[in-house]
Write a protein that binds this DNA or RNA. Structure first.
Length: 605
RNA sequence: GCACCUAUGGUGAAAUGGAUAUCACAACGGUCUUCGGAACCGUUAUUCUAGGUUCGAAUCCUGGUAGGUGCACCA
């Protein structure tokens, strides 16, 4: 349609003897009252031609009208000189018919033949899976689905930090635990909790000693105490890397396995499934090799030695926008690769297993500057990977203080947040007639929807204030509201089936279509439904699932207005088949849209 | 200290450089439920500040203010 309008405009300009600019834009007006399509061509031309934009627009419209563009009913000049196009009721109606007949409505082929890789979540064994991981998972999963929806081949990757100082601190912290090591048949939660506490104790103790030792007024003995502790942790770290201590290995393997098992349970609830896992422990060797091979005076000389460590002097480079980078350490003076060093190995390994056309890493925005350095290095070391790698960041999920399950006042785990949401959902359903098993399934779906929607409703990169009260109330702008709308619409379809009303757009329309009207004032519901594929495509190209979330919100609101203003399933109503058709189209679109957000539609709720 | 990010009704957000800045929550008033009220309808209220670019600025540029984040052997 847009192409047809553009060529019509070109023809109109030629007949007015005006040179057409290279780019003529056809846009969707923000307000539907301004038509189905709009162009600012007159405003753009007005300067060079020194004409009044409204007069020019009027002239263009005159010649456009002579062309009788198919599917267009009305062309108007509005505001400062916009030209608005209104589609015929028949065209809109045809759009609804298409939704009904096309199971894949909303999908597109714009990325067919392309390979996308998404790396997200990236939790660390031995540490809690916290709400930041929940966010990254939500965003990464939605981006993956948008990729699939637009035809790309998509692989989901998860990179987990199973070595490094946090693990060393967890194992070192075991000595301060007053609880016994979990027995084999202890619950998974208890097992993971045990290591989580060990890490907390280890990290706390280490941090405390470090603070004391580094304070200006610290005594010699305090300094010595920290020094000896530092040696212990470093030795533990080395043992983990080189697996030289059988006892450490045994404990380490158990802790790692338990953590990973627990992550899998969460992924199941979150409805996400990774194609492949990578571990930091596997990236040490390739990372070291790459860095060593390019440390001056060898290779590309990107790295150099400094104070016994190997660094990348970021100050000497700029990012894609010409902004200077910062220096980072890639190999420590203990000859161990830092996280940065391993990341470089990972960049290469990831591409080796899957030659993607676009590779996106999702992380918190506190890593923005870090990723600029990594992306720059990737470009310099592996140009063919560098141009395909991108970083998408998210802000923090902030919780109101003193609420939710942060019992200790420390990090909120993903599990506790999920549990709270599920509990709320169950509470809400207590009067529903459902088996308790069904209720649990639905409570999972609703709880997940509440969290995911809260994350995806706003553009990523900024912090999200996750207001417990509001999100738990499930009102208005929320995932459960969308689910509820879908569920209610589905139950309407069931009812229609029982009564025997078939969805159809082909009813006796004669007077209505001649008057250019559809059922609903302005045909707003219909027009929104038809736009779904454009919304999905835009969300994909901008890596912005919130376009889908906002669209669904508007759509559901419009549907609910429709629902409450008219009787839909009614035997004697000649419009009933069309009304049911709208409900059916709505169900198809909202189900697809929620899928893009990673949200399931419950059977009942 | 240097760098980056952010600033929109009371609150949380949206808006390819476009039209009267949109939505939800809260507040206030209504629908009174027989297709599922986790719903619907209405009212009040918003672009941090000073300049600049532009036919047109919440959006782009410059200064200021406020907040957040990151900067060597952590991940």
């Amino acid at each position: 349609m847009q192409e047809a309008l553009i060529s019509s405009i070109k023809i109109a300009l030629i007949s007015l003897k005006i040179e057409a600019p290279e780019k003529i834009t056809i846009e969707r007006p923000t307000d539907m009252l301004h038509g189905d399509f709009s162009t600012n061509i007159s405003l753009v031309l007005t300067k060079q031609l020194k004409l009044n934009p409204v007069n020019l627009a009027l002239q263009i419209v005159e010649t456009l009208k002579l062309q009788n563009i198919a599917g267009i009913e009305k062309i108007e000049v509005a505001g400062p000189g916009f030209i608005n196009f209104y589609q015929t009721a028949n065209t809109i109606k045809g759009g609804i018919a298409e939704i009904l007949s096309n199971e894949n409505f909303g999908k597109s082929i714009r990325n067919v033949g392309k390979k996308f890789a998404f790396e997200y979540t990236d939790p660390n064994p031995f540490k809690q899976f916290h709400i930041g991981h929940l966010m990254a998972n939500t965003i990464g999963e939605s981006l993956s689905r948008l990729g699939e929806y637009t035809g790309a081949e998509v692989k989901r990757f998860c990179y987990q930090g199973d070595v490094g100082r946090h693990v060393a601190l967890a194992l070192w912290g075991l000595r301060f635990m007053d609880k016994p090591f979990p027995v084999e048949d202890a619950s998974l939660g208890d097992k993971v909790e045990f290591f989580g506490q060990a890490y907390a104790k280890g990290a706390q103790r280490f941090g405390k000693l470090e603070t004391i030792a580094k304070a200006p007024e610290s005594s010699e003995s305090e300094k010595e105490e920290f020094a000896s502790v530092e040696v212990e942790v470093r030795e533990m770290n080395k043992k983990i890397y080189d697996r030289s201590d059988a006892e450490v290995n045994e404990i380490y393997d158990k802790g790692r396995e338990w953590s990973l098992e627990q992550f899998e349970e969460l992924y199941k609830i979150l409805d996400t499934k990774f194609d492949r896992y990578f571990f930091e422990s596997q990236m040490s060797t390739p990372g070291l090799e790459i860095v060593r091979a390019n440390t001056a005076p060898k290779g590309l000389k990107l790295f150099r030695e400094s104070d016994g460590a190997v660094i990348f002097p970021g100050e000497e480079y700029t990012d894609r926008n010409g902004i200077p980078l910062h220096t980072r350490v890639f190999i420590t003076r203990d000859s161990l690769p830092t996280y940065d060093g391993k990341e470089i190995g990972f960049a290469k390994e990831k591409y080796a297993v899957y030659q993607y056309d676009k590779g996106i890493t999702v992380s918190g925005n506190e890593q923005n500057d870090y990723f600029k350095v990594i992306l720059k290095l990737t470009e310099l070391l592996f140009p063919e990977i560098g141009i395909k790698a991108e970083h998408v960041s998210h802000g923090m999920l902030r919780l109101p203080t003193g609420k939710m399950s942060s019992r200790t006042g420390e990090v909120v785990t993903g599990e506790s947040l999920l549990n709270d949401m599920r509990q709320m959902a169950l509470e809400r359903m207590k009067d529903r007639e459902m088996s308790s098993d069904d209720k649990k399934v639905v409570a999972d779906q609703v709880g997940v929807a509440a969290i995911k929607y809260a994350v995806l409703r706003q553009s990523s990169g900024k912090d999200i204030i996750f207001d417990a009260e509001k999100s738990l109330s499930f009102e208005g702008d929320s995932g459960p509201y969308l689910q509820y709308s879908a569920v209610r619409a589905k139950s309407l379809l069931e009812k229609a089936g029982v009564v025997g009303i078939q969805a159809s757009t082909e009813i006796d329309w004669t007077p209505e279509l001649e008057a250019g009207t559809l059922l609903w004032p302005g045909g707003k519901l219909e027009r929104l439904l038809v736009r779904f594929p454009e919304v999905a495509a835009r969300a994909e190209s901008e890596h912005s699932p919130h376009h889908v979330a906002n669209y669904l919100m508007e759509l559901a609101g419009e549907f609910n207005s429709f629902y409450s203003s008219t009787q839909i399933v009614s035997k004697d109503d000649k419009f009933a088949p069309y009304k049911v058709a709208l409900v059916s189209a709505f169900v198809r679109v909202i189900t697809g849209g929620l899928w893009l957000l990673g949200i399931q539609v419950p059977k009942k709720m």
